[in-house]
């Protein structure tokens, strides 16, 4: 088994005297989808921010295998390298599309931005790639010059995905990407995420409170409660044969899907 792409060791973060994340260990490698589930306030969004290097942990570290094969601690990277990682080798799909997109910039500009950020200076190529990616996330080519402010919720999320994937990232973080969408729209998005992550061999860490989403998308799952991972393992094993009392409660609280 190859070394993990990203691994967290003893990640701990407190806000005042409230423990947001306590001693969290996890790892993920290419082609894997890991779901982090829990109720609001369980610390899962804080964990995602720690993994993304947006927040610094009080203790513990996140290690990442860079494209050159070297595994480095995010804390040692420095802000410039970390941000470069964020806009090239990583993607971050936000729950609120307004945080993940430039709402006044056209769909093509949104997708092209990361290419331009990597130094692409050929308009024709940027536009070509933008159109290609819009197609892959099932947005009509005719919408390439429309801003996402004119898009539906589902389209915005698909645009976010295109914007993130255009640079060929290896790791994509997703924070509740499907919440707030109609079920039919949600289904289409889930299918897209699953298909693209499998085709591209992405490592995906998805935070969700929706166990059905976790079941459909993820290979492995980590159940969080009060800042701790209380149960982890194969998604279907944890959901079908939950060991921890809290996981049993969580599973029992969901309408059968």
């Amino acid at each position: 088994m190859s070394a993990p792409l990203l691994s967290a060791h003893g990640l701990t973060k407190t806000y005042g005297n409230r423990l947001a994340c306590a001693g969290i260990d996890l790892d993920i490698t290419e082609g894997e989808v890991l779901a982090i589930v829990g109720e609001s306030g369980s610390g899962k969004s804080t964990l995602l921010s720690l993994l993304a290097g947006e927040l610094a942990p009080d203790s513990g570290e996140v290690r990442y295998r860079m494209r050159d094969g070297q595994t480095r601690s995010l804390a040692d990277l420095g802000p410039a390298a970390l941000r470069r990682l964020m806009r090239t080798d990583w993607g971050f799909v936000r729950q609120d599309a307004r945080q993940g997109l430039r709402m006044a910039v056209s769909a093509g500009g949104n997708v092209g931005e990361r290419l331009m950020g990597m130094g692409e200076r050929h308009y024709g190529r940027i536009r070509g790639q933008a159109l290609d990616w819009l197609g892959r996330v099932e947005i009509e080519a005719g919408r390439v010059d429309d801003p996402p402010s004119q898009f539906s919720g589902g389209m915005r999320q698909r645009l976010q995905i295109a914007r993130n994937l255009v640079t060929g990232p290896r790791l994509v973080l997703m924070d509740e990407p499907t919440s707030g969408l109609d079920v039919s729209v949600q289904a289409r998005l889930l299918d897209l995420i699953r298909r693209l992550s499998a085709e591209l061999g992405l490592a995906v860490i998805i935070v969700t409170h929706d166990l059905a989403v976790a079941r459909l998308l993820s290979h492995r799952i980590a159940v969080m409660r009060a800042g701790r991972v209380i149960e982890t393992g194969l998604t279907d094993r944890v959901l079908d044969d939950p060991e921890h009392a809290y996981t049993q409660l969580l599973v029992a609280s969901v309408l059968a899907a």
Partner: peptide, 9 residues
């Protein structure tokens, strides 16, 4: 069957 598949512990 589920144990053999790894679905049950």
């Amino acid at each position: 069957l589920k144990m053999a598949y790894g679905n049950y512990r």
